[in-house]
Design a protein around this nucleic acid. Sequence first.
DNA 1: CACAAATATTCATATATTTGCATCTGTAAA
DNA 2: TTTACAGATGCAAATATATGAATATTTGTG
Lengths: 100, 100
Amino acid sequence: MLNIQELDSNRLEMAASMLKAIAHPVRVAVLKHLEGGKKLTVTEIHDLLGIEQSTTSHHLGILKDKGVLCSRREGKNTYYYLKHDILSQIVDCLQRCTCE
Amino acid sequence: MLNIQELDSNRLEMAASMLKAIAHPVRVAVLKHLEGGKKLTVTEIHDLLGIEQSTTSHHLGILKDKGVLCSRREGKNTYYYLKHDILSQIVDCLQRCTCE
DNA sequence: CACAAATATTCATATATTTGCATCTGTAAA
DNA sequence: TTTACAGATGCAAATATATGAATATTTGTG
């Protein structure tokens, strides 16, 4: 049985966990590339960012697992895209704050 | 739209580093308590969140170091407050996204 | 089926983070 | 100046995260 404090703490955990998923330079870059509803495959991201295929897949898995991205397989490719387009505002907001 | 500057690796590092500072349940909770320009002392936060004094101080130090909070000493107390009030929108945005 | 392409997973290593005790510094009051 | 309060810091153990090589899985093609 959950009380109010436990619910609050669950929501804090959820928010922090989503933020932690985004809080990595590679994953911020992924988000920026997916702004505006764009869908990209693992290979496209791996080429765009110049990182290993398996590293790319790990990062995308983290973002998907924490509810930041969704994926859809189409043939041999898996397209990744933002689950909530609003999330890209977070990055923009941060970049405004780090611009001074 | 994407441009090269927005994807610059220094900017990515900065944005990720600020996000990483926030991406912890305790620190999300701190941000929520400081919404709207409120200023709280280390002891007040330590009491509000029910965590150790030194742990509280460590977390506040991380937030200050990464440019999320500012602090001002007044006598024996040190007041912490948001550097950019807009940052509390990040937490609200996330909580909207984790509400489904 | 055999093969290649795209992606995911396993595993090991390196690195970073979290926590709190003990302690140190700074400040105010007696 | 002695004492107590408020906060910061050094340290160490536990835990978590990042990376990439090797390998496995899934899917399309011939």
